[in-house]
Amino acid sequence: MTNSPYFSDVGGLPPQTQTLSSKAVFTTAYAVIPKTVMSDIVTSVLPHWEGTRAWIISRPLSGFAETFAQYIMEVTPGGGSVKPEPDIRAEAGIFVVEGNGTISYDGKDHALRTGSFAYLPAGAKWTFRNDSDAPIRFHWIRKAFKVVEGLEPPPAIFTHEDECVMHAMPDTDGKWATTRFIDPADVRYDMHLNIVTFEPGAIIPFMETHIMEHGLYVLEGKAVYRLNQDWVEVEAGDYMWLRSFCPQACYAGGPGRFRYLLYKDVNRHPDLL
């Protein structure tokens, strides 16, 4: 395990003595991909990336994620890419869970460290490299940007969790809070990536049921999550995908904080089929 405050201990392979019981589940409403599933043998290598492997934990698929793909990326020292994104329609949200690296964008280098966030607009020319002496691990959200006529495209963002305010949810005494990397009032953006924090004993006190699709990666702690009609125990390193309108709630029993990285699609009309 690393010293990162966020879970980043992916890889390896269970021993032959390991039992097959698992909380991994795939339904039409939600999926749970536990950390025990993210072994060495399920990684992908990607074109134009050197010294890199990826765990692809969501992708657009009938009956599954509809709006986004999510990767856990691991780039070794000297690795990276001068052509990271193959799709001109794709915007990127990047959150670093361990290590150091550099994104070059618009003629400027942006240093990344554990806790850094970057948003790169669709069509942006950017590169990524790891010039450090240790691997860097980060989440990479890829989404096809939904252009709106008369609305200017969103600018890039480079920030860090330490530079962002943690906003307490109303009437929770600060026990349930959200750190927002993108201004929720800025309608130019059609996706958000947030960190949600629950203190021990905090809850989502109603069954959220809404249009927004979610990807939730547990960064710290453990909790029980209500997904549709099921209660599922999750812990740091587990991943949940929730389809639009999947009922959801949470109870963070402790003993420590429960935190997750949350993707959601926002600020656009739904497509009419």
Rank of each mutant, 00 (worst) to 15 (best):
G93I: 01
D131L: 07
W140P: 03
I136K: 05
D171C: 02
F128E: 02
A111G: 05
D162P: 00
V97Y: 00
I157V: 12
D106W: 07
E98Y: 06
H160G: 05
E98W: 04
S104M: 09
F128D: 05
L112N: 01
I141E: 01
M169C: 11
K125F: 11
D162F: 04
W140K: 04
K143A: 10
P135R: 09
P155G: 13
S132L: 01
A156L: 08
H167K: 12
R113M: 10
E163W: 10
I94V: 15
E152Q: 14
P154Q: 09
P170M: 11
I141S: 01
F117W: 00
A168D: 14
T102R: 06
M169K: 14
C164W: 03
R129Q: 01
N100E: 14
H167Y: 12
F158S: 03
L120C: 08
A168R: 09
N100D: 08
A156H: 15
H139V: 12
A156T: 08
K146I: 11
P154D: 07
D106N: 11
A111S: 14
M166K: 15
D133T: 10
M169H: 12
S132E: 08
K108D: 11
H110R: 05
L151T: 15
P135D: 12
A118F: 06
K143Y: 13
A124C: 03
L120G: 07
D133Y: 01
A111Q: 13
F128W: 14
F128R: 03
D171E: 13
A122W: 06
A144E: 09
P170C: 10
P155S: 13
Y105D: 03
V148P: 03
T114D: 07
R129S: 05
G107C: 10
C164Q: 10
V165P: 00
F138I: 04
Y119W: 03
H139D: 05
A111I: 15
F128C: 07
H110M: 02
A118C: 10
F138Y: 15
I136M: 11
P170V: 09
E149R: 14
S104F: 07
G115Y: 04
E149Q: 12
T102N: 07
R142P: 02
I157Q: 03
E152A: 14
R113L: 06
V148T: 13
P155Y: 11
I103T: 06
K108M: 11
A134E: 10
R137Y: 07
T114A: 01
G107H: 07
K125M: 09
V147T: 12
G93A: 14
P153V: 02
V165R: 07
C164F: 00
G93C: 10
